[in-house]
Design a protein around this nucleic acid. Structure first.
Length: 407
RNA sequence: GGGCAGGUAGCGAAGCGGUCAAACGCAUCAGACUGUAAAUCUGACGGCUCAUGCCUUCGGAGGUUCGAAUCCUUCCCUGCCCA
């Protein structure tokens, strides 16, 4: 029923950052095999940001591998914490959500997560189920099980404390709340990014406190975003969304710096370890990284869409960037003749291709605007008197403008 | 509760009565180069304007002044020290 220990460990260890402690994991797996009982593999999800990107997929893919080995995936939607609003990571306080919003986001999250996860061996819980029932006395009891000094060990807190940045009391409660989730569902393994290490370890401590066997903490590397520097995140706009169109996945992937090719292959695709070695070798031997990256981009599109989409995305990309032609499926706008402004400059802001008139002026002055391939020379240039034309703004914003009377 | 230091454009950070739409760095956008890049170079980077210029910004609200991001009052927020 379950693969052997060695087979399982091989699969599980690929790409991971740390398994703490590894012996415990081996022991749990052995027992699972012997008793024919799947392990509970926990993953906490933040419903305040339900748009999943490839960064999330790193951990989700690991969870999927556990599923394929026959174990039980348990998604915990952190609706309770989202309702309070977590300001951690200093800057802005996240908006608090209503119960309905968290449910809705949770549903969205689930839908997107299942693009990666298997529909079998999966269950989902909202942590308000147990956290919402705790009385203040329970919370105090919970808080008494951990000390300030140990909390401050967390890297994030240490840094902020030293830098004189604010840390709210309730931020100390988040790791404890997350740990309570592990207690509630009796997690055997909890997955997370390396930035979750502390929280995952608190889970171990708390499970012990509550008389359970501690979970194994398994951390995955943080995926670097399309800028090749920062962690992939929506707010930095260096992400590739799992719901992005084939065109976007392909284009964004190709824009990633070459240094990310191997890590992305390792963390985001199913290429075998042997292939990974081969890819490394061929890059070292001087293969044009572009070709390897094209393969990466195709692989990713195929993963979230289909092989056909991958091929189409590549053709489209070549058409736009190599042949400098226009894409296949242009956005179109139809304007009645009396809606057409006198200048291209005005047209840009009217069509929202520029955020403001100043922005439109800048784009034109800097030579970033073309009409049917002809550069727009000045901000007073009139809109061409054609029935339709293609407006290109910057490198990749296109709009087909059709001028015709309203029916 | 008391003392001190702070809150400036997306972020970081100068400025401390006029020459401030506000230096500089990062991020961003456009152009050149290229492999689609990355790196590099050039330019832009509050809004309106062909332009001279005008309008709205320096935590909030008042005030002093011909003139305030800069001074005063007060309120809010943050950090540190003392209690």
């Amino acid at each position: 029923m379950f693969p052997t220990l060695n087979v399982q460990m091989d699969v599980i260890k690929r790409g991971v950052s740390e398994i703490i402690p590894e012996e415990d994991l081996a022991r749990k797996i052995e027992r699972s095999i012997a008793s024919k009982t799947p392990l509970n593999i926990k993953l906490g999800c933040d419903p305040s940001r339900p748009d999943l990107h490839l960064g999330h997929s790193v951990v989700l893919r690991k969870l999927r591998q556990f599923q394929e080995l026959g174990h039980q995936a348990i998604l915990i939607i952190g609706d309770f914490t989202a309702m309070i609003g977590d300001p951690s990571g200093k800057s802005k306080t996240r908006p608090s959500l209503t119960l309905e919003e968290t449910r809705q986001n949770g549903q969205t999250y689930f839908e997107q997560a299942t693009k990666v996860l298997s529909a079998k061996n999966i269950s989902m819980f909202y942590n308000s189920e147990w956290l919402g029932k705790m009385a203040f006395a329970d919370v105090i009891r919970l808080a008494s099980k951990y000390t300030v000094a140990r909390m401050l060990e967390r890297d994030d807190f240490t840094i902020r404390y030293k830098a004189g940045e604010p840390i709210s009391i309730h931020e100390f409660l988040y790791p404890l709340a997350q740990a309570m989730d592990s207690v509630a569902i009796k997690a055997d393994v909890e997955l997370g990014g390396t930035d979750q290490k502390f929280n995952l370890l608190v889970g171990r401590d708390l499970q012990r406190e509550y008389g359970l066997e501690p979970q194994v903490a398994l951390t995955m590397p943080i995926l670097t975003g399309t800028d090749g520097v920062e962690k992939m995140s929506k707010s930095l706009d260096n992400y590739v969304g799992v719901s992005d169109t084939p065109k976007d996945i392909y284009g964004k992937t190709l824009r990633v710096p070459d240094t990310q090719i191997v890590p992305w292959f390792e963390l985001l695709t199913d290429v075998t370890n042997a292939e990974l070695v081969a890819i490394r070798k061929s890059l070292a031997a001087g293969t044009n990284p572009r070709d390897v990256k094209r393969r990466l981009a195709r692989t990713l599109v195929a993963l979230y869409h289909s092989d056909d989409d991958a091929r189409a995305a590549e053709e489209e990309f070549d058409r736009i960037f190599i042949q400098k032609s226009v894409p296949d499926d242009l956005d179109e706008t139809t304007l009645a003749p009396d809606e057409v402004p006198p200048t291209t400059h005005a047209l840009l802001s009217q069509l929202k291709l520029a955020a403001s008139n100043s922005e439109a002026r800048r784009l034109i002055e800097q030579g970033g605007v073309t009409i049917d391939g002809e550069k727009v020379g000045g901000i007073h240039d009139p809109v061409p008197s054609k029935a339709e034309f293609v407006l290109k703004v910057g490198k990749r914003r296109f709009m087909k403008v059709i001028i015709s009377p309203r029916p």
